[in-house]
Design a protein around this nucleic acid. Structure first.
Lengths: 156, 156
DNA sequence: ACTATATAGTACTAAAATAGTCCTATATAC
DNA sequence: GTATATAGGACTATTTTAGTACTATATAGT
């Protein structure tokens, strides 16, 4: 089921809330109240996002979290990477030596290109897009050549 | 880590092998020898792929498995779906009622569009592409409008 | 300086998903 | 009829993920 983890889903909910109130500093307990996600879990997510510069933190009394960048400058790939680590479709795409078949694995190179296609797709979606009303319209972008023009379908 | 499961990875190795020898019928034990993946696991994968019409099976003596379609007509999205079920980035994109925040979840719609973008990317990659040498070249295809032209980068 | 408040970091536990195995039934070739 | 091979389902073990707890550190306000 090619999917993101629950934590990443929660992260998107939390970030969406913060993006709607960009002027304020948000404490972990504020965000618990606003989103319904348990406090320790919110706390964990906020720490991960801060470490990867999606959020900035202010310690101490009157402290809290705020967006590090404008919503349009934070993309979904960053958010997923912050919570789940490097994005890749198969293990051997990120780390060598974990796969017994590695030396004879002829498809590794093409999996890597698929990864790039997927990454390109989610990198192009910003937090600002996430809080915008749903609309759609065709645009174009570049993907690796294994995605051939002849195979493509326009769905919109 | 936005990734496919190990079983899907094995499936790609198995299918690649079959695609290289399209004339023959391949038994589960032949494929174990060819790929190094354990027999019960190979067997499980072959059954899943057959059920979803990626492979066709012939029972009995001299039986085995073969591709149901030409390599160019089987895409990666089909393979992943056969092994892991419907592709979606968040739980609530496929099934309603599993998410407590569902009614107040304003981002559901946009996650759904991200799913489409990812699906479009992997649907465009065929099994024939997987066994081809790695090359690259820019092409274009259509994705939902949340992917804005201004955010796009050409990496090739 | 002291105290209340809030984040930082790390280690641990519990729950869920995934991977892998095994057994019985059924179909086919010779 | 028998050997060979897939079909289907149930089960177990492992790994990953989610969630919790605890201690340290920083800041605001008095």
């Amino acid at each position: 089921m090619l999917r993101v983890s629950k934590l990443t889903d929660y992260a998107s909910v939390i970030l969406t809330h913060i993006a709607h109130h960009p002027a304020a500093l948000h404490t972990a307990s504020d965000l618990t109240n606003a989103t319904g996600v348990a406090l320790p879990t919110v706390s964990k997510i906020l720490k991960l996002l801060t470490k990867k510069n999606v959020l900035v933190s202010h310690r101490g009394s009157k402290g809290g979290y705020a967006l590090a960048k404008k919503p349009s400058e934070t993309n979904v790939a960053e958010i997923i990477t912050a919570i789940e680590g490097p994005i890749s479709m198969t293990e051997c795409s990120t780390v060598s030596g974990l796969c017994e078949q590695e030396s004879s694995c002829e498809i590794k190179g093409n999996w890597h290109l698929i990864n790039r296609a997927v990454y390109t797709a989610i990198e192009a979606v910003s937090l600002a897009d996430m809080i915008a009303p749903v609309r759609r319209q065709a645009v174009s972008f570049s993907v690796p050549e294994i995605v051939k023009t002849s195979d493509l379908k326009v769905e919109n």
